[in-house]
Design a protein around this nucleic acid. Structure first.
Lengths: 206, 206
DNA sequence: CACCTTCCAAGTCAATTGTATTGGAAACAC
DNA sequence: GTGTTTCCAATACAATTGACTTGGAAGGTG
């Protein structure tokens, strides 16, 4: 066997270059040449790692999902280094993590939007975006159930519905932040407003 | 003055051809040639009505907004031909009108998404999408205030917040319908769930 | 009729695209 | 060293794009 190269690492480097372009100039502008240039490699090299543009897009999509997943876990660990967070706190951190409150997340959302606008028309790109949602919803519902057991949430709530509402709310509010209808902080307040109605008697964090 | 042509009508015809393409193949595929062909005219003729691609896109964007506005008013008038609808009914019809419950609306949403994914990066396209939202929100809030006066909504609600929540919710739920996470009917149920919590003691429509 | 403005069809142009090909450098096995 | 496989740079190619030019048809005005 000849020249050994870490195949996966290269593909990730390329995916991150694609990420940068999609977040600034849009996914359409992420041509093979542009991505290669952004990654600091030649078109020939890029083609060696991806058979075609679509394959590159799909790989990058999956890569992004994993990164987003990892980031939200890191955020949770960072926010509560000493004690385990309450269900309310976990939910709040997760939902806030979806909002474009900082530049990094904002760029990530731009990339998500670029992919989303393709995913709604292309089943192949829809799959990766889809599959992460049900587990996330189930986890939200579980957190809410823990909230019920702690007596913080009324027992007659439809927890699956509430979980979906919170998720959709975060997404919808983000939409209007990106359209500059309101600020990201306003979106965060509204999340808190909805959360506060759910968790009765739980003091809102400062 | 020579040959007289209804300029505006042509531009609308072109905008609708663009609409059809953006809804099926995506906004990027809406090249001047493709739009011209879809509209059944020549490239030369299309260029006579729009100086460049961007101008065509902006015009079409505005045109779509007006159509959507008109459609929702028509829907309201059709749903309650005899008596004036209650605030609850008006809100419910409007919010349901945003969901992809039929093929027509679904296509419209695909177009909206195509535009949205450009608007988040291009201020020129963001403007038209933006400007319609505040009046809509104000109208929602006004409906909610009427609900408070009828004793259907608790007096201590933050009506501006509730209005934004409902709007964002409809958008977010639509997002997940398009990603095939849940059905449009489920989204409608969830809207009713949130509405039902707001309007206390108002019976849900069959 | 003559004229002049509006309208638009056809063609050209440079730029950019995804894909394919070719040739050779690099590195490991023997 | 020889060979063989992996890796990749360079180039070519057809297709598509937005923009522009040109020439003339259509039709109202005088």
């Amino acid at each position: 066997m000849p020249k050994r190269v870490d195949h996966e690492a290269r593909r990730q480097k390329i995916a991150e270059a694609l990420w940068r372009i999609a977040g600034t100039r849009g996914l359409d502008k992420a041509s093979l040449r542009e991505v290669a240039h952004e990654a600091g490699i030649s078109l020939g090299q890029l083609q060696h790692y991806f058979a075609g543009r679509d394959e590159m897009l799909v790989f990058a999509s999956n890569h992004i999902s994993e990164l987003a997943d990892r980031q939200i876990r890191a955020r949770l660990a960072a926010a509560f280094p000493d004690r385990p967070p309450t269900p309310y706190e976990m939910l709040r951190v997760c939902l806030r993590g979806m909002l474009p409150l900082d530049d990094n997340t904002r760029t990530g959302i731009l990339v998500q939007i670029a992919y989303f606008s393709r995913a709604v028309r292309d089943a192949r790109m829809r799959e990766p975006a889809r599959k992460g949602i049900p587990p996330l919803l189930a986890w939200f519902a579980e957190l809410l159930r823990a909230g019920v057991e702690r007596g913080e949430i009324a027992a007659d709530r439809d927890l699956d519905a509430e979980a979906m509402l919170l998720l959709a709310l975060a997404d919808g509010l983000t939409t209007y932040v990106m359209l500059e209808v309101h600020e990201a902080e306003r979106a965060a307040e509204l999340i808190d407003y909805q959360l506060g109605r759910l968790f009765e008697g739980v003091p809102a964090p400062g």
